Amino acid sequence: MSRSTALRYYIAARLLLAPLMLWVITTVVFLLLRATPGDPVDALLGPRAPQTAKDEIRQQLGLGKPLWEQYVDYMESLLRLDLGKSLISQGQSVWQIIQDFFPATAELALFSMAIALVVGISVGILSASRPDTWMDAGGRLFGILTYSVPLFWFGMLLQLIFSVQLGWFPLGTRFPITLPAPDGPTGLYTVDSLLRGNLNQFFIALYYLALPCLSLGVLISGIFERIVRINLKQTLQSDYVEAARARGIPESKILINHGLRNALIPVVTILGLTFAALLGGAILTEVTFSWPGLANRLYRAIAQRDYPTVQGIVVFFAAIVAVASIAIDILNAYIDPRIRY
């Protein structure tokens, strides 16, 4: 079987498995929400509301049905791509909630990933290119710290230093409430401000993004640093690199043309897993910084026992991770011809 045919079979298998993965995630979330203590009707009406009013609301929301009926109803709605309506937000559809809040999360994730790639790859190169030096030791220490430090603690530390003590960065918002926010088709403030040619809004949006993105990006960068450092060290010790040195090729060209070309291939491989970690980290970052994104809205929905909103947002995030993983697998197969499926 040729490599292209094997790749097509692999992609087809992944596409067929993606709905199964989403079904498993949806089922687990559905059962966990109903197994944990608490009642969404109490969150809606308050614990002191009359029992008759609670029973009436429970019947209207379909919560009085047996569990298996609720599950069948939800799965039928999901097959129609209907994520339902929020129990708390006055019947607002979950799709509308995603549309309103996801751009803030996407912008946070994109800029955090950019910071993670730049910082992680740079530190990894410096560490691997100078083995057994203080830079190498510093790179290893950086990878350990960024992997082990709790994200919420690091975010609060940055807030305490740069926002509370120094007053350099704002807290708890995406754009100044005294200024009109960028309006455009994407919902990404940086992109929409550039589309309108408003550089002032663009730099203000970047200013408000800086601290949350730095918090999330730096900690995720440790993943890339460790991968680049390990693979670049192995590449620089290989036989064909030693042969290049023997021919008198400058070390800088060896590093760029021979070392980095092979050391960066695994970075593409782990991008899918890192993207999943990024969305998980976005929840902690948005809650810590009161960032008005979809992950923060998910946290509020969990606290309020808003079943449809929690289920819809989790399925949406899971679909994004599945699509991103498949796309990165395809990209990686084309970049690295050694991969076989």
Rank of each mutant, 00 (worst) to 15 (best):
residue 39 D to W: 10
residue 41 V to P: 07
residue 41 V to C: 09
residue 41 V to M: 05
residue 43 A to E: 04
residue 43 A to Y: 00
residue 43 A to F: 02
residue 46 G to Y: 00
residue 48 R to S: 13
residue 48 R to P: 03
residue 50 P to K: 00
residue 51 Q to F: 04
residue 52 T to Y: 02
residue 52 T to I: 09
residue 53 A to F: 03
residue 57 I to M: 02
residue 58 R to N: 08
residue 58 R to S: 03
residue 58 R to I: 04
residue 59 Q to G: 11
residue 60 Q to S: 11
residue 60 Q to Y: 08
residue 61 L to P: 00
residue 62 G to P: 08
residue 63 L to E: 10
residue 64 G to R: 02
residue 64 G to H: 07
residue 66 P to M: 12
residue 66 P to K: 12
residue 66 P to V: 09
residue 67 L to T: 15
residue 69 E to P: 09
residue 73 D to N: 15
residue 76 E to T: 11
residue 77 S to Q: 15
residue 78 L to T: 10
residue 82 D to G: 13
residue 82 D to M: 13
residue 83 L to T: 02
residue 84 G to K: 04
residue 85 K to G: 08
residue 85 K to T: 09
residue 86 S to P: 13
residue 87 L to M: 10
residue 90 Q to P: 08
residue 91 G to Y: 00
residue 92 Q to V: 10
residue 93 S to D: 03
residue 94 V to M: 03
residue 94 V to A: 01
residue 95 W to E: 05
residue 96 Q to M: 13
residue 97 I to F: 01
residue 98 I to T: 00
residue 101 F to S: 12
residue 102 F to K: 00
residue 102 F to M: 12
residue 103 P to W: 03
residue 103 P to R: 06
residue 105 T to R: 00
residue 105 T to L: 01
residue 107 E to Q: 14
residue 107 E to P: 06
residue 109 A to N: 11
residue 109 A to H: 08
residue 111 F to H: 14
residue 111 F to S: 06
residue 112 S to N: 05
residue 112 S to F: 00
residue 113 M to I: 10
residue 117 L to W: 11
residue 118 V to F: 13
residue 119 V to K: 01
residue 119 V to A: 08
residue 119 V to H: 05
residue 120 G to R: 13
residue 120 G to A: 15
residue 122 S to Q: 05
residue 123 V to D: 04
residue 123 V to Q: 07
residue 123 V to W: 02
residue 125 I to G: 05
residue 125 I to T: 08
residue 126 L to F: 01
residue 129 S to C: 08
residue 129 S to W: 06
residue 131 P to D: 02
residue 131 P to Y: 13
residue 132 D to C: 14
residue 132 D to W: 06
residue 135 M to K: 10
residue 136 D to R: 10
residue 137 A to I: 14
residue 138 G to P: 08
residue 138 G to L: 14
residue 138 G to W: 09
residue 139 G to K: 05
residue 139 G to V: 12
residue 147 Y to D: 07
residue 147 Y to H: 11
residue 148 S to W: 00
residue 149 V to R: 00
residue 149 V to H: 01
residue 149 V to Q: 01
residue 151 L to R: 01
